[in-house]
Write a protein that binds this DNA or RNA. Structure first.
Lengths: 229, 229
DNA sequence: TAATCCATTACCCGATTGTCTAATTTATTG
DNA sequence: CAATAAATTAGACAATCGGGTAATGGATTA
């Protein structure tokens, strides 16, 4: 067993847990309180109660379940952020839907953990987050990074990888590519661009060749991965 | 001093350092090699050399300086990602400009560290990132989260769309999905999984239904965007 | 035990895809 | 002006796709 060796601040980290399932709540409290530098100061089983306790205790870190009854965790976080503490929020759910992850992180969460996280790991995350780190579970890390706005590499990057080696798509082909990525058939693309199916097919064909792929699925995946759309 | 207690995989983590300043390079190597579960397998002082070494060693983690002479770190990361290993990249710079941070993270980096990070902490980050975690330095965490697209919280209903809406894919279907995303035809998928084409088609069919999409292109795009693969 | 889910295979059928060759028009560039 | 590139259209063809229905065996669950 390899021990983590990072120094942590001597001050104990105060934590509030907001989670509707009693069993999970107990589990979280035990897991965290087992660490002498972490202190669970309060627990709530719904968002309203949670907000009261947060206002009262002003904890360093808030463990917030997103699937709360009544006011959900996202709303609670928004309200929490309006209260001007610098409490850090860890979103803790079993969901891995892209919209929910992004919503949580853009609404005030500094971390996103899935509930099957190792308890010791969770303690590490609490420590990290209390210092301001943004920590995102492996299961949803990629989708989060993908949600970041693509920077226009032209101008930022030297013109090597853009001009050389890669044959650039024409404007029209880019239009077709966008529709292709959105899952439209050649017929639908043609209708959208007000051209014949033959034209759409011709464009798709040249797109496939220029992108060096064999079919539209590969083209779509490559386009998404490389942020072309 | 409080010890971190998270379990770490016994397998050592191989690391490549790409950094132009010799002194920093030595410092990084020493700091990381002091951990018995981390092994710096190679170092490069520019991107070109770095890419060669990366291709050769296929390391678990890449420490990439962004301010390299010639090809910069962002461009190097893009090229690196095109090589389709699942090496994780830690962007390591002294800059905290928003554009650079976002550019790095949206171009393939899984983590962003400022160079004044505690060496022991860096080792923790290497461990985290090797498991897929996204880790962002406190100094730039907020600006990164701010760059995420804002979701309209009103009307956000975790209760509905999560439990009822989503049907989870089976393991087998996930295998099929992976091949689908890589652009394989049903015939090829069947060959890969050593089943009949009928079976592959059946799986694809149920994948489309469960993912609520009309065709394989949409399935592939959705899978990539949501990080399912 | 009965019910349910999963993986597997099979057949049919209409729609779609990707490639080919070939032609016309418009713009841009040398 | 000539040449080149892009956008457009067309017909034909083999291959693939997606949907539908249906059957079987195995595993798990109620």
């Amino acid at each position: 067993m390899i021990q983590k060796t990072s120094e942590t601040k001597t001050k104990t980290i105060s934590v509030i847990i907001v989670e509707d399932f009693k069993l999970t709540r107990v589990g979280l409290r035990c897991a965290l309180n087992a660490n002498e530098d972490i202190n669970v100061v309060a627990e709530a089983e719904d968002a309203v109660e949670g907000l009261k306790l947060i206002e009262k205790h002003k904890p360093d870190v808030i463990l917030m379940d997103l699937g709360l009854p009544g006011m959900n965790g996202i709303e609670a976080m928004v309200k929490c952020k309006e209260m001007m503490f610098d409490s850090k929020i860890i979103a803790l759910t079993s969901h891995d839907r892209s919209e929910e992850v992004i919503a949580a992180l853009s609404s005030g969460a500094s971390a996103y953990c899935l509930k099957d996280i190792d308890p010791n790991k969770l303690a590490d995350v609490v420590r990290d987050v209390s210092t301001g780190v943004c920590w995102i579970d492996p299961m949803v890390a990629q989708m989060t990074l993908n949600a970041l706005p693509k920077i226009d590499n032209i101008g930022f990057l030297p013109n090597k990888s853009n001009t050389e080696g890669r044959v650039p798509l024409t404007e029209r082909e880019f239009e077709v590519l966008k529709h292709l990525v959105s899952g439209k058939s050649n017929t639908e693309i043609a209708k959208e661009l007000i051209v014949s199916v033959h034209t759409a097919k011709a464009h798709v064909c040249s797109i496939l060749q220029k992108m060096c792929v064999n079919d539209r699925v590969q083209a779509a995946v490559k386009a998404v991965k490389e942020g072309m759309v």
